[in-house]
Structures are given as structure tokens and as C-alpha cells.
Amino acid sequence: MNIIQCEELSKSFGRRHALQRITCALDAEKIIGIIGRNGAGKSTLLNIFAGYLKPTNGSCRVFNENPFNNIHTASNMIFIDDQLSFSNYLSLEDILKMGANFYPNWQNELAYRMLDYAGIDLTLKHQQLSKGQSATFNLVYGLVSRCALTILDEPMNGMDEVIRTDFYRAILKEYLAFPRTFLISSHHLQEMETILEEILLIDEGTVIAHAPLDEFKEQLVLLNGPSEALAELLSEMEVYTQKTVTGTTSAIVNARKLFVSEEILRTKGITVSSLTASEVCKYLTSKKGRDIDAIFD
């Protein structure tokens, strides 16, 4: 069942086109990574899903309704980002009590246990927290709400590596305990890809890939072997990056256009290696002809 459906969705801010004709469908009860480089349009898309922004053109439906200023959508969704703040008149404990009054599936005891584990004093005000503590509190708030749609926009910003690792596990454990839809935007894809089921990759305001994690990683492969043996093969393929050192060439290519079997390639001394999801994202969104090494040549 689709929880989100977009058709030809576009969003502009003056002359800047943040999103351009996005069409996608996201299934319920999955952990989905919304991935892209800075400025790709991830946050804009998530804010439209949350009902905070209205599309310029096209349509977006969440729970089969227009989410913009929609009470039904708002009551079944929570949006957590690094801009989230609370009243400076309330302690963290007061904030948790208010959350319990608003969200029907609220897990107050779990919130207390998680924040105690993170060493966060509930007598403090939200504004008194460090950046990492604020991110941790906000993420806990989003998890214990147990909303049908939980949107996490860069939820780990400011957290140190140890606490990030712990809370990726917390997201997965919460998903298994109470299945719902998680949309997670993050720059730490390599850290979190083990919990993702699906990736939606955005580049310059458009969706350039949307697939289950395993299929996503299979889009590109690394070829390595004698330059002479690879030369003819690469001339007929889409090459994302290529390097040659002392007669040996390494190249990242589109796996779907590799029509030669691995067995035949091995007879020519060519090996085929898989990539991580993070590496696939990097090469799919890299601009051809741009290489940081070239700046220093």
C-alpha cells in the first residue's frame, strides 16, 4: 500500500527550481532513505510530505489526501529536523508529558529510558542542550511518538559517532517493535545503509534512482584489469570514473549495460567488484568531467 504518491511534483522559490517534476510512490511500513547531496532538494520534498510546503505544480498525496495544512495528515505524522525547537518555558520532562497528551501511541517509559541512556537531564530546557543533545532528544521524541509516518531530516546532525551508531539501532528496533514508515534523510548513508530497505536518490531536484537497497547497489560495478583488455569494452559503455596506473585500469560502469559475463571477463584478467550504496550514490550524482584530483594537476 502506498503511503505517499507524487505526480509531476515541482517546487520553486522565485527563480530557483528546488524540485522538478518528481513522480514516485512510497510504500507503507518501510525504512526508506531519502538521499542526495547538499541542495539536491531532500528537505524541500520532506517538507511537502509533512504538509509544511505547498507544491508549485503537480500533486502530492499522503494517506491518500493532500497533506498541505491537513489535520488528518498532521495527526498521523511527525517531522523531526535540526530546526525543531520547543518552548523555553518547559522542561524536557514537561515536553514529554505534552507529547503523551497529543500522540495516541506515545511511549513515555521508553522515552525516559532512552534519554537516561544518552545522559540527558530532563530538568533542563531544550535551549540548554548542546547540539548533539538536542538532536538526540528530538530523535527520541520522534521515535516514541510511534506515528504512522515518521520523517527524520538529518536526525543525527551534531551527534558523535558512538551515539549515532546506537540510535541507528534504536530506529531499527523501534521499527521491528511497531512497524511504520520511516523516511530518513542523512549524509551518513554508509553508517545507516544496513537499516534501509529502499533508497530514493535525488539530484538537482529530480529523482534519478528509486529501488530496494540490493537493486540500488547493483546499478554500478567496478571493473579492474589490464588496460588493453578493458579499452574496447569501456569504449562501448557508460563510464562514471576511470583511472589507469602502469597498464592497469579501474573503472566504475553501469552494470545494466555490461553484456559480457564475468566468466568471459575473468579469462581476460578483468575482475568485477560490487560497490556500497554510498559509493553508488557518489558516482550517480557526480558531474562528468569533474574530479578533485584534476584541480591539483
Rank of each mutant, 00 (worst) to 15 (best):
I3S: 00
F13K: 11
R15V: 12
L19Q: 01
D27I: 06
G36W: 00
N38S: 13
L45N: 10
N57T: 14
G58D: 13
C60V: 15
C60N: 09
N69F: 11
N69G: 11
H72Y: 15
M77G: 03
D81I: 01
Y89H: 12
Y89F: 05
L92I: 04
L92K: 08
E93L: 09
D94N: 14
L96A: 02
K97R: 12
G99Y: 10
D116T: 14
A118Q: 01
I120W: 01
L122A: 08
L122I: 00
L122S: 00
K125F: 12
Q127S: 14
L129M: 09
K131L: 00
G132K: 04
S134V: 03
A135P: 04
V140H: 07
V140E: 05
L143Y: 04
R146H: 07
A148W: 00
A148C: 04
N157Q: 11
G158F: 01
A170E: 15
L172G: 08
S185M: 11
H187V: 12
Q190G: 10
Q190E: 15
I195Y: 02
L196D: 03
L201K: 04
G205L: 11
G205V: 06
E215C: 12
Q219A: 05
L230N: 01
E232V: 13
L234Y: 11
E236T: 14
Q242N: 15
T244A: 11
V253T: 06
N254S: 12
L265S: 06
T267D: 13
S273C: 12
L275T: 03
S278L: 05
K288N: 11
G289R: 05
F296S: 14
